[in-house]
Write a protein that binds this DNA or RNA. Structure first.
Lengths: 341, 341
DNA sequence: CTGAAAGCGCTTACAG
DNA sequence: CTGAAAGCGCTTACAG
């Protein structure tokens, strides 16, 4: 391949001028710039990114750090972020730390990042305090999604409010014996979401003056199978709930399967809600609370790129709105009188 | 941060020796190596990757090129590949080309790769001939998954055989009026899979002497919603099929929803099969043909890394086996006599 | 507006 | 086994 010197020779200028002309820097005459552009095109010149990084200290790469890539939420965050990064000419270094269980060691090593990226996006990842400190010491901008972290901007939804929306919808329909299926968090992910969603449920119930007994709150693995299991045990009770608020669509679909397995009609005998608006939700007619996920990835990237550009606005906490999507898994409880709000 | 010279000074050796010692090269005395290691640890030295790449020509980065990151198949391929790459000390440059529609322009630009990666993994991506040629000219190893491409190794399943497994299972149960829901391929992805799966269906039917009329083969968007739509129109026919072979689990779940919506009992009145063994399949009791996806990502990575290491074994075509998983959506057709194979 | 030259921080023949 | 020195291919003050 041709080097910058070949282009300089061909255009009859110095390598410094080639460098300036090609990067669109000012203070190059239009005529010279054109000569350089022509020569570069002719020679199919591409600047060596490792050489320019070494010289400039900029890499044009952003790290996207995730605990999982296969889960719906993370895949959509990655998609949103990588799309936006690409539009801005950045490359994506995918750091898939994987799930090493609760007693995991330091997964983030500074040599994953050192002089390799200009910034990092941390997607709903639980970090050790040392990992956080290590990332901070690296000296580049960091923005997180899902988990606020001191000193960094964060984009997320209001988890408490999202579940409130679903719970209030059911209360509005006249339900009183409402159960909640929440999650044990996945290892290595944000641990505030499951707790916040339970909090939202309890708060909405309390506001409506409805009691919440222990049996009404179930914990499941954050998967369809987890929802199925929790659903079965909840729905096999003698006095089963008339509605179940589930903390994610994937778990909610598990609860729907449990109802089907037990011959319980939805929404005739049972109402179910989820959170996310997963593509499977529509097909199941699931009433849910939609959160814009790839959008959150894009927003976090925008904030990050502004920080990279030096427009530092200080750490910000951006909460994106969620929205109740009523479909066919919710209805007034059986035998209920029309309920006027 | 400290540079290699600082380490050299501290250890009382030359930078060349530091470089050799730290990379575990031979011809360094044990004693010298230890002195260097100690000094490097003391100074928390990390070699600048851009500097070593410039000097050595190796980047330690592998490009993972995908058309989508949010779809099940791709997310699992990425997970398998990134995990294996990480284990081998490689970094992952995620190139998410996105869906630009059928008339898409060149999405792969050589400046995405030039001097930036040591190799590339191309995951089930339809490429323009020029893109293929461009990748070839870059001169590093390439391995693909899903779509064989002249000159490169490829890892995939036998799509024809996978659908045969499902179809023969249904034929073995006594079904004769079997429909097939296949896919319009997603833009920018492998276009052989949908066709191959239809071929497998037709071949199994032909082998059993069963006719396939036009109405028995439906094309749908490769999504749950697509399966729902195709399922509705298929199951609303006066003479509806007793079984449906669906080309993917996500579409099959859509077909199950269609049956539920029309009040058709599965498997009493209708059998349904999928392909993949998506995590949603188990929860729906879906009989399916399992393909190991992250495994394919890992295998492709292994082949790629051997090529990077110079152990070139020439282009190979690796076909990984699939497996029928019988669950609760398949049964003999209504009114059928016990069928002896 | 343009160029000469130093410098980014490593690796790698080459010589000993 | 070890070192001096060239070289990887750019960018960036600095000078003009």
């Amino acid at each position: 391949m041709s080097r910058i010197e070949d282009v300089a020779l061909a255009a009859g200028v110095s390598t410094a001028t080639v460098s300036r002309a090609l990067r669109g820097l000012p203070k190059v005459s239009a005529e010279t710039r054109q000569r350089v552009l022509d020569a570069a095109a002719e020679l199919r010149y591409i600047a060596s990114p490792t050489a320019s990084s070494l010289a400039s200290g900029k890499t044009g790469v952003v790290a996207v750090v995730v605990p999982y890539v296969t889960r719906w939420y993370f895949a959509h965050l990655i998609a949103g972020a990588s799309q936006m990064l690409r539009e801005h000419g950045y490359h994506v270094l995918l750091v898939d730390v994987g799930d090493e269980g609760p007693g995991r060691e330091m997964l983030l090593d500074s040599r994953l990042f050192f002089k390799r990226v200009d910034a990092a996006l941390v997607l709903s990842l639980r970090m050790h305090p040392q990992e956080r400190e290590m990332l901070g010491r690296l000296g580049f901008p960091v923005v997180s999604v899902g988990v606020p972290s001191a000193g960094w901007s964060c984009v997320r939804i209001d988890d408490v409010g999202a579940i409130r929306l679903a719970t209030e919808h059911l209360i509005g329909l006249g339900h009183e014996r409402i159960a909640f299926v929440g999650g044990k968090p996945l290892p290595a992910t944000d641990f505030t979401t499951p707790g916040d969603r339970e909090t939202g449920f309890r708060a909405a119930m309390a506001d409506a003056g409805l009691p919440v007994r222990d049996w009404q709150v179930a914990n499941a693995a954050w998967t369809p199978a987890g929802g199925l299991e929790a659903g079965l045990s909840l729905l096999r009770r003698r006095q089963r709930p008339t509605a179940v608020v589930v903390a994610s669509d994937e778990m909610a679909i598990g609860v729907l399967s449990a109802a089907r397995e037990l011959g319980i009609d939805v929404p005739g005998e049972l109402s179910v809600t989820g959170v996310d608006d997963h593509e499977m939700a529509a097909v199941h007619g699931l009433t849910t609370v939609r959160q814009p996920v790839s959008e959150q990835g894009r927003m976090a990237t925008e904030v990050l790129l502004r920080a990279v550009a030096g427009d530092d606005e200080g750490p910000r906490l951006l909460t994106v709105p969620t929205q109740l999507v009523v479909r066919r898994t919710t209805a007034p409880p059986t035998g209920s009188v029309d309920h006027v709000q």
